[in-house]
Simulated scan of single mutants.
Amino acid sequence: MDFEFTDDQVSLRDAVAKWVEKGFDFSRRHALAKAGGKTREVYAELAELGLTGLAVPEAHGGMAFGAVEAMVVMEELGRGLVNAPFAAAALVSPALLQAAPQEVQAAWFPKIADASALVVPALQERAARYKLSHVTTTATQAGGAWQLSGQKSVVPAADEADAFIVPARISGGASDTAGIGLFLVEKGASGVTATGYATQDGGRAGELKLANATATLITTDGWATLEKAVDVGIAAACAEGVGAMDRMVAITVDYLNTRKQFGTTLATFQALRHRTADVKMQLELGRSMSYYATLKLGEAAPQRRRSISQAKVQLGNSMRFVGQACTQMHGGIGVTDEYISSHYFKRLTMLEMAYGDTLHHLGEVSDRMQDTAGVFA
């Protein structure tokens, strides 16, 4: 199988890498995190590079690039530790909006492409425990219009967003896959309250409360679209994790090559060399499974969902191992807020929990392997 990137993909990677190097150094990132994590201006700069239109159809002003291009971008944003809601707003939201009627797409896709509107998914609910079908937010029709009531948690950039894409229950029980609709809710609509808070990794999230809030219908049968969009988000998180691990390993190797103890550099200690080899092996395992997740996004739902969960399990293990090992090899400085490596560790920890932690996805893999019990003929 050919894993070489095309010239266009290499050019895209280089463009993002150059922006990160020149426009988003650690001092800027650290200042934004200390100020609460608001990054709307950073998102606007990504729009100037054309990245916010990455997954938007060409007919609506986007570039209609595929999953591999998204992976390339996410790796570089991970390396740069860019704390903007790019994956949520520019990859997951367009995937959800694909199910909307043409008039809704025509109204919102161009705004997403040029970043004049920040549209984020609001998926998580309290007590869901990563279960995607757990939807208690309700959708009712009143006078020909849809109204939503409920609460969504850990919504990316909730207090900075202009609109939200919300799964809400039209019918069925709290955990049924049937009866879930998708709706677009504008921040300025009556009954909408969005509050924000800083996250542990220097980003921004918040709570979204809906009280008979006016909403625009995307689709009344949203389960398949919701699953696909979340898989897009997981693949993006895997790619970002690879980029972050890659950079954290490079920082650690540089530290071992310069820091001296007992009159010699740490890199000469055999135990640390073995530990570094283990770290690099986990990085490459994570990289291969990130590629696997991206390439499986075009498969049918059963194969895609299992493959994505398999990738998330490996990335969860790799991110935890790399983050902990690199921090330990740094010693005390590795956990200080002033040192860049600690911020990579925080981000890797958050990514491990994004869209379901390792144990959750291990259960998902197990549920989807019952026919073979893990043994393949």
Rank of each mutant, 00 (worst) to 15 (best):
I170L: 14
T336Q: 12
D221T: 15
G78T: 11
A55R: 08
R129Q: 08
G80I: 07
T52F: 06
R40S: 13
L295H: 14
S190L: 00
V10N: 04
H360C: 03
R368H: 09
T264N: 11
Q141E: 15
A55V: 08
L285F: 14
R79D: 00
V375S: 06
L208H: 04
M350E: 09
E45W: 02
G332V: 08
M319T: 11
T294Q: 06
A100Y: 15
L148A: 06
E21Q: 04
M369Q: 11
F65P: 00
C238R: 06
P167M: 03
A90M: 13
A174P: 11
G243S: 01
R368L: 12
F26S: 03
Q303F: 02
M369P: 01
Y292D: 15
F109W: 13
T358V: 13
R247C: 01
V16L: 00
A107W: 03
Q98W: 06
V72E: 00
P156A: 01
T39K: 03
E76K: 01
Q124G: 05
A157W: 11
D162T: 01
G298Y: 07
D7Y: 01
G179Q: 04
A239P: 01
A277S: 13
Q328N: 02
Q141T: 12
A325V: 05
D371I: 06
L359W: 08
K346P: 01
A311R: 11
A95C: 09
E186W: 01
D254E: 15
F65Q: 06
F109I: 10
L348P: 06
L217Y: 13
D201G: 01
A67K: 10
S290G: 12
A189N: 15
P94L: 03
A15R: 10
Q105E: 07
G203T: 14
A95P: 01
A89L: 11
A235Q: 00
A59Q: 14
L148W: 09
Q370Y: 06
F109H: 05
F24Y: 13
G181P: 06
S366T: 13
P110H: 14
K296C: 10
A89V: 08
S290D: 08
V166Y: 10
L256C: 14
A198P: 04
D201A: 12
A31E: 15
A84W: 09
L351C: 02
A250F: 02
T39S: 12
G66C: 02
A377P: 10
G374V: 04
A300D: 15
A174C: 02
G374F: 12
A215C: 05
A100R: 12
A277I: 12
A158N: 00
M353Q: 15
L362H: 06
D254N: 10
Q261W: 11
V82C: 09
A163C: 03
A64F: 10
F376D: 15
A377T: 15
R347S: 04
F376V: 15
P167C: 08
I234W: 07
